[in-house]
């Protein structure tokens, strides 16, 4: 209804509310789209506009929150704040992207698989006709891309899991999944950053604090990061919990 495609055809623009605009780059999970999203976020962070509050990336969209009165009173061209922001974003898209060429570093996540830390490991192995050892091997061999952070603070949606260890969600969610639980839902894997209810099949737990409101960067992961899981024994798990200095090794 309110769509406009920008000149380069890179995205559609729509009003999410009076205080936010969304740029929609597509409707599929795809690394090329993710790159458009992260590149545009980077460009915008280097060229902010007056009244900009927050920029939120998802799989294939970027939402831009702003303060309408500040935008309205700014000298940006346009008759209302939506027009001003929308025209500004389209002008940015027309510019040459300063593409993010910086290589993502691999973030290693220690993971204690099975038993109390992964109560659904046997189930995931069973429905895929694999041994639990094979599930651990495949899950920890893959490199995952953080596609987006969503659902609850610091929850990373990871793409790149082998389909051979895919598993459906639990028919009804567990009322309590502890922080650090690593789960599988369909072709996706993810890590619960907070104690929360949840329906993913839990195969392991990490001792790392994926989200900590006391840190300057509260979320350990951000969109675009590359993640690998590193199997650890229970005693290593306990060492990390008891001796946070040990974390520097990861």
């Amino acid at each position: 209804m309110q769509d406009k495609s920008n000149s380069a055809g890179l995205f559609e623009i729509y009003a999410l509310s009076e205080k936010a605009i969304t740029l929609n780059f597509g409707n599929v999970i795809d690394e090329a789209l993710l790159k458009h999203v992260t590149d545009f976020k980077h460009t915008l962070s280097q060229h902010p506009f007056p009244g900009l509050i927050a920029v939120v990336p998802t799989y294939a969209s970027l939402s831009i929150f702003y303060e309408p009165v500040t935008v309205y009173k700014s000298t940006l061209p346009g008759i209302n704040s939506y027009d001003k922001v929308s025209a500004y974003l389209q002008s940015l898209a027309g510019k040459n992207h300063t593409s993010l060429t910086q290589q993502s570093s691999i973030i290693n996540i220690p993971a204690c698989y099975g038993n109390n830390w992964g109560p659904d490991l046997d189930y995931v192995a069973g429905i895929n006709n694999l041994s639990t050892e094979e599930v651990i091997k495949q899950h920890s061999a893959a490199e995952y891309k953080v596609y987006m952070i969503g659902f609850i603070p610091g929850f990373a949606y990871l793409g790149g899991m082998p389909e051979t260890i895919a598993a459906p969600r639990k028919p009804s969610p567990r009322r309590y999944v502890p922080a650090g639980s690593i789960g599988i839902a369909g072709n996706q894997t993810g890590i619960y950053p907070l104690d929360s209810p949840g329906g993913w099949q839990v195969i392991a737990q990490t001792p790392l604090k994926m989200f900590d409101a006391g840190r300057a960067n509260p979320s350990l992961l951000k969109a675009g990061d590359i993640v690998k899981f590193q199997p650890v024994s229970f005693s290593e798990f306990r060492d990390i919990v008891e001796n946070p200095g040990y974390l520097n090794a990861y």
Binding site: V55, P153, P218
Partner: peptide, 10 residues
């Protein structure tokens, strides 16, 4: 709290 929406903080 609007500064950490990208970390999915409500």
């Amino acid at each position: 709290r609007t500064q950490f929406l990208a970390d999915a903080v409500p």
